[in-house]
Design a protein around this nucleic acid. Structure first.
Length: 483
RNA sequence: AUGGGUAUAGGAAAGUCUGGAGUUUCCGCUCGCCUUGGGCGCGAGAGAUCGUAGGUUCAAAUCCUACUACCCGUACCA
């Protein structure tokens, strides 16, 4: 047996290289489409996407949302109605200007986000307080002419998987509650795929264009940079006034509605891959893995035992499929080792090996992807063992991810301290909430302000102190390098 | 958007400086044999208008110009 040098994934410590190689090797994304910032989902990656988004759908549907679909094209006059909103997006809008060779009378924007596509319809749909709250969402592609360096799944010109929810409420407080609920749903969603998150209120200068305020869900990538993987915006009655979304209240008065919107994109896929993956490739939470169990038969020459091995594989496959699992028997003409490596690269949570030795014992070998733990399991208990193993694996993945996450949050008393810790993760420091001081902190540290933590993120350490710039009373805020 | 780098078979590289037949290596792919408990081996084969478009030249992967895409930064943004 020769020790041939196989092409290997770069180590995860070289994160950027690892990430790009892995997307290609594991067939998550093909980045060779010849337009900047547009990429292709091959079947394996698309399957992962589908599994993740079906969880998002489940959360929203169970929380009283309904799925709908609005057009990709937005007429210029609607798009241009909300001044703040336009300012935020005008530099990155693609315009459709021609139908064939005929110039259009009204230019059409490819949606960079869908507020201005949806709200003219909301004006028609919302009539009375009995119609509220209205909670719709859609999962669509959106287009942004990104000037920055694009990255697959992270910074795209076509966001292919933008889940955007748009809600309408009777008053400001009700909308505020919905924003909090949206954030809860997002955190529960990320918890389900074992991705740790932290929530903060974005500073004024970084909120959604046209919003009263923005809450954001962030996670931490292996290179110490933060990835924003969900946002929820309180729109107040800003868009309601612009788009004349009014309803008749209980007293018979026409009053402006209050709105929210919140979104998640394929960054959720990027986060899953990046948080859990290791030097061998993908490690996927079992629920979303395109293949959940790979069965590798161990066969020898042409001996009679092969038939027994193959039929045992088929029978185990049928048992597991019967329990709703996605199972593949890998009976290709290759050495078992080669198959192990391939399925590890693809992040298959459980591998089952069946050979003559196992058959003799009425057992199979079961291997966990995250820990590589390997043990013999009686064949008649296989379904229960696999399901238990998957539950345990998800729990352990979250524990490990959370430990890593927590270990990279640092408290800083001064700007100098912040500079020393630069780029290692998320810094917590005190800020007086004056934008001038905020910008000063960003400029000096070279970090971005995520914002004042919301919920559990701020509870562990002191949440009050003196601003690291001016010394006035302040609150804890989060700083990090961002994607 | 801007600074730097890169582009040769499905992937990775050598060849480019100093122009002379698409030459070579590794992986992957196809077929046959042999094998299979952590990336077997042997043999045969397919696959490239050298990123695109112009230009210089008797002759361009190689020199020149422009464009496109990708990678690493920076400003801005999710």
């Amino acid at each position: 047996m020769k020790n041939v040098q196989q092409p290997k994934l770069p180590p995860k410590s070289s994160f950027s290289e690892w990430y790009h190689e892995l997307l290609a090797a594991a067939e998550i994304m093909d980045i060779r489409y010849p337009v900047k910032g547009l990429y292709v989902w091959p079947p394996f990656g698309f399957s992962l996407r589908k599994n993740i988004y079906s969880i998002i759908r489940e959360f929203l549907d169970n929380d009283g949302h309904e799925e709908a679909l609005f057009p990709l094209l937005i007429p210029e006059n609607e798009f241009m109605k909300e001044a703040e909103h336009i300012k935020g997006f005008e530099d990155e809008v693609y315009w459709v200007t021609h139908g064939g060779v005929t110039p259009l009378e009204m230019k059409l924007a490819l949606r960079p986000t869908s507020e201005t596509a949806i709200y003219p319809m909301y004006k028609l749909w919302v009539r009375s307080h009995a119609d509220l709250p209205l909670k719709l969402y859609q999962i669509v592609n959106t287009f942004r002419y990104e000037t920055k360096h694009t990255r697959p799944l992270i910074r795209l010109r076509e966001i292919t998987s933008f889940k955007e929810a748009h809600t309408v409420h009777a008053d400001w407080d009700d909308a505020a509650k919905q924003v909090d609920r949206a954030i809860e749903l997002y955190q529960e969603f990320y918890r389900r795929i074992a991705v740790p998150t932290i929530v903060s209120k974005r500073p004024e200068w970084d909120k959604f264009p046209g919003a009263d305020y923005t809450l954001a869900v962030d996670t931490l990538m292996p290179d110490g940079r933060v990835l924003q993987i969900g946002t929820a915006h309180h729109l107040g009655d800003n868009f309601a006034k612009t788009f004349e979304i009014t309803y008749e209240d209980v007293d018979g008065e026409q009053v402006y509605a209050h709105q929210t919107c919140y979104g998640i994109s394929e960054r959720s896929v990027a986060a899953t891959i990046s948080v859990h993956g290791d030097d061998r490739g993908l490690v996927l939470p079992p629920e979303i893995a395109p293949v959940q169990v790979a069965i590798v038969p161990i066969i020898f020459g042409n001996r009679d035992s092969n038939e027994a091995v193959l039929s045992a594989c088929a029978s185990v496959r049928d048992t597991l499929t019967g329990h709703g699992l996605r199972v593949k028997v890998d009976d290709r003409d290759e050495h078992p080792g080669a198959k192990y490596y391939r399925w590890e690269l693809k992040g298959v949570p459980v591998r089952i090996e069946i050979g003559p030795r196992d058959i003799a014992k009425n057992a199979v070998m079961m291997v966990r992807r995250d820990t590589a733990d390997k043990r013999s399991v009686p064949i008649d208990r296989i379904a229960g063992e696999v399901l238990d193993c998957m539950d345990l694996m998800l729990a352990d993945m979250y524990t490990v991810a959370l430990q890593k996450f927590d270990s990279r949050i640092f408290d800083c008393e001064t700007l100098d301290e912040a500079l020393e810790l630069e780029a290692q993760g998320i810094l917590r420091l005190c800020w007086c909430q004056d934008p001038d001081c905020g910008h000063e902190i960003e400029d000096v540290t070279g970090l971005r302000m995520l914002g004042v933590p919301v919920g559990s993120a701020g509870s562990e350490a002191a949440t009050k102190g003196h601003c690291v710039v001016c010394g006035r009373d302040g609150v804890v805020t989060l700083m990090a390098r961002t994607y």
